[in-house]
Write a protein that binds this DNA or RNA. Structure first.
Lengths: 201, 201
DNA sequence: ACACTATTGACACCCGGTGTCATGAATGAC
DNA sequence: GTCATTCATGACACCGGGTGTCAATAGTGT
């Protein structure tokens, strides 16, 4: 009876080490930039060896953008929770409320924005980020397809992927506009404005 | 009178070496995959040293996706050539005719498709590809913004980026659908179907 | 106290990428 | 034709991200 919860102590210390590592790394990134900070330095600053760092994160990129792996699942879950007869575009907008809450949350905001800048500041990292987002989109495409009035004729329908991709494009655009406007108006409004540009047939 | 054309012999041999390198590399990539092929191997197969390889391509990725740098300029140029009073969505569709021609060209098709598979087969490469495409999009956003009936009120308008992003999402979706349907119907039809899903306000 | 297991660091190694330098070939001037 | 310049090349050493291996050690259960 030493293990009440499936992942206990070991797992918990692991999480601790990871968060410690990320905070230390963030400071270094903000200080001298992502690419000019070596894994050796991060590891040393956290009091461990490079080899051990790679036991906590599969890569240097993963330290920054690894968290987006859960993001996809959360979106998929949220989409499943929407009523089946709701127009897809509306469903997607509601699903993005997850992002809205996350982005507008005062508590995590400062750190998020910092990370956002780090990601945009490195081509390497930005590339990885976009790839992750593509993976996230793939999780949604199937679900959108099943909600679409299928036109049996066409062999493979490009529309589900187009709709999901367009929705993500709106979110990216909204996020960028929001960041560049110094958050004058709520992010939700930016997103609404972007998504209202399109009427989905 | 040894130099009729601004870039002659030197530049020409350079191009030759580059194409030689790419064909050799493609063969190796198709044989054992992108990531399992080292730059040393590519260079050796082309009869040169690794150091020389990097004088022809700035990176291993660049050998595969470097060509997309020109792509952005061509799209921007094509967009500039569209009538100013044409609806943007229509303009973008017409601009994408460049891609349509390229994709459907029988001569380059086999090689393109091979490259496409290589790119999709490597997370690393795919990430870089997406990043390049984002850069391409950035070239178009400003132009779209200037064509949009501007609503002076909003500080920074998310719509231009959203529109361009959505258009690219349509192109990606169409390309994927076309590839997966074994090119039964023309690519242009896939693209039309994807883009007709949206009405841009 | 003992055995077992997970974590760690040290080390060697691979690969992508860069700086440096000496060699050598093509080019141009005389 | 000779000489000097210029550019491409290869060899080499190096950096940083990432992995495999192994021995030492710490934590845990009995």
């Amino acid at each position: 009876m030493t293990e009440k919860i499936p992942q206990s102590i070991r797992e918990r210390t692991r999480r601790l080490a990871q968060t410690e590592l990320t905070t230390v790394a963030q400071d270094l990134f903000l200080e001298r930039g992502y690419e000019k900070t070596t894994v050796d330095e991060i590891a040393a600053a956290a009091g461990m060896s490079k080899r051990t760092f790679f036991r906590y994160f599969s890569s240097k990129d993963d330290l920054v953008i690894g968290k987006y792996d859960l993001f996809g699942d959360r979106l998929a879950e949220a989409l499943d929770a929407r009523p089946a007869d709701e127009p897809v575009w509306e469903s997607l907008r509601r699903v993005f409320d997850i992002t809205v809450d996350y982005v507008e949350d005062d508590y995590t905001r400062a750190r998020n924005d910092a990370m956002e800048l780090i990601v945009r500041g490195s081509a390497q990292l930005n590339a990885r980020y976009l790839e992750k987002m593509q993976r996230v989109q793939e999780l949604l495409v199937g679900r959108v397809a099943s909600r679409l009035p299928s036109v049996g004729a066409s062999p493979i329908d490009p529309r589900p992927a187009a709709i999901v991709g367009a929705a993500f494009a709106c979110m990216q655009a909204a996020r960028l506009a929001w960041l560049e406007s110094d958050q004058q108006q709520p992010f939700a409004e930016c997103l609404d404005k972007a998504m209202e540009t399109f009427i989905v047939v």
